[in-house]
């Protein structure tokens, strides 16, 4: 079997840790665009794992706004205000070149820089991609602005791969019909369907 030619990928996002507090220990995920698929790369630095989402198979992309930016603002503002208060106190009580001023200044910058970046990047979000067989979170798409920018790039390619776009009204109508038709009927695979399934297996 002859090896297939090398695929060239275009970077969509830079790598980002899967867990917020586990930057050093967890793998980092990034998103790349291939000729007919999206590639999600999880890299630990020593190994990479790949997940491919073919454009023709992508059913939906969900962006959900989260409170992560607000949470980080609260976490960073409290020590930042304390440091700035310390800095002001040192400035008023000691000469400008005292070591205390320098220390307070450095510590303030340590909190100020992430605080600024947290707000520059904008509202936080969780982005999920749905295919017929999976719902996968894309950790590298964690800010609304960036996610929309990437989606604007990818949407035309998905639409082209799937042969057309669906108008919003048609989707809403279909969803209403689906909700009406499935009302009162338990979803397939639940305990109600099959008494032999242990309750733990019910979705």
């Amino acid at each position: 079997m002859e090896p297939m030619s090398e695929i060239h990928y275009r970077r969509l996002t830079r790598s980002r840790a899967r867990g917020t507090f586990a930057v050093a220990f967890q793998s980092r995920a990034s998103l790349w665009l291939g000729p007919d698929h999206l590639l999600c790369v999880d890299s630990s630095g020593y190994a990479e794992t790949y997940k491919r989402f073919y454009l023709r198979d992508i059913q939906a992309v969900t962006i959900q706004e989260t409170k992560r930016r607000t949470l980080w603002n609260v976490i960073l503002v409290v020590p930042l205000v304390g440091c700035l208060a310390g800095l002001l106190t040192s400035l008023s009580s000691a000469p400008n070149d005292s070591p205390a001023v320098i220390v307070w200044l450095i510590v303030s910058v340590i909190f100020l820089v992430p605080f600024l970046f947290n707000n520059i990047f904008g509202t936080a979000c969780v982005c999920q991609l749905r295919t017929a067989v999976q719902i996968e979170e894309l950790p590298s798409l964690c800010r609304v602005r960036k996610t929309r920018r990437i989606l604007d790039k990818v949407r035309p390619l998905i639409v082209a791969a799937q042969g057309g776009e669906i108008p919003a009204e048609a989707v809403s109508a279909w969803m209403r019909d689906w909700a009406a038709s499935s009302a009162g009927v338990p979803p397939a695979g639940t305990v109600a369907d099959n008494p032999n399934i242990p309750p733990g297996l019910a979705p």
Binding site: T62, Q64, E65, T131, A132, R155, Q162, E165, V171
Partner: peptide, 11 residues
Amino acid sequence: VLLQVEVFPAL
């Protein structure tokens, strides 16, 4: 919850 859902024909 605030959501934005892009649905494609594959659905």
